[in-house]
Design a protein around this nucleic acid. Sequence first.
DNA 1: GTCTATACACAGATAGAC
DNA 2: GTCTATCTGTGTATAGAC
Lengths: 210, 210
Amino acid sequence: MTEVERISKRGAIRQENEARILAAAEKVFAEAGFGGATMQLIADMAGLPKANLHYYFATKEELYRKVVQQIFEIWLHAADSFDNAPGPVEAIGAYIDAKMEISRRHPFGSKVWASEVMHGAPVIQDYLETTLRDWTAGRARLIQKWIDEGKMAPIDPNHLLYMLWATTQHYADFGHQIETLNGGMPLSDQQWKAAKASVKTIILRGIGAL
Amino acid sequence: MTEVERISKRGAIRQENEARILAAAEKVFAEAGFGGATMQLIADMAGLPKANLHYYFATKEELYRKVVQQIFEIWLHAADSFDNAPGPVEAIGAYIDAKMEISRRHPFGSKVWASEVMHGAPVIQDYLETTLRDWTAGRARLIQKWIDEGKMAPIDPNHLLYMLWATTQHYADFGHQIETLNGGMPLSDQQWKAAKASVKTIILRGIGAL
DNA sequence: GTCTATACACAGATAGAC
DNA sequence: GTCTATCTGTGTATAGAC
């Protein structure tokens, strides 16, 4: 094995192990909270000795921070559909679809995010004050423009955004409650489709865009 | 001091101390999560030695359970307005007002509830399967009746209920995020009023009741 | 880069004097 | 009913052999 191969292999191992640890950590942090999660549990779920976690992530908090950042990235990309849309129906409709899909595919991440914010955002406060604040202001301006153009009713843009976040993330964060009320069964494909349709119908009609 | 007085006094002390502990516990559990909360922190906040907590509540989990139950009670009473209302506008409008007011007055309780559900309801699963399931089924029937009577558009009652819970509780659970996006300031009276109005307008128009 | 053994801190819970 | 001192378990983190 040449020096180059050794380095590239080391890089590959690192990449794979970090990914496995992050995936396990996301699940454990979501299900137990930061305080309830243990490095031992995460290690077991990742199939690695506990000490290896500390080799890749110096502290529990550093690992947690990475998990939260990962989620935030996914979050932001979901909003791409918001831009370059002709009006609120297309933009908000696509945004709801995207966020609902994230709730379905990344329920753990959504829960970790919710928990982080609920506890006062001790780790990602800076993101809230920079990236999220800018993002929100930009989208609020866009919504206001649609209102001025008569494409939707005069709704406070911020409260509309809160409603979009709340309703879509609810299907991840309160998924257990929804499942219980669904007779203990996860929502089927059909039911997810109905959920998306309900949310879109109520909100789009609610803002006078339909 | 007679025997009766002594007993009554003992009862009074117990009642007051339990109330203080429960209030402190609600705050600490909300801000740190179950795993992150410590009996020491709760004791300090309640102004009592740690051992006293164990005198009134045998275990941390028992204390936590009481806190969650307390919240659930408040929750259920907020729905009284739902019944005995002539139609969806009055019922749902009053329900939104009540839930928004709870989010404002009991943000800690809402967070503890959210955290409990997010972690799979390890403590109050039985409530979800009995009381909440019955409550939900009853309100869903009422909503279906309004639909059949042509008082609102044909919306899936369950998804409407989820939306009501999500939007109203969001103002408590994600209050920190909202505050950050509000320039670091808590919502003012005016802003809370605007929030309630926005939620009611969008949802009531969204379900075709306006 | 991996993993066993362990140091160190702190949590929940209890004993027992007051 | 109150509170100090303490037991015991467990968690994070690290040392050091491999």
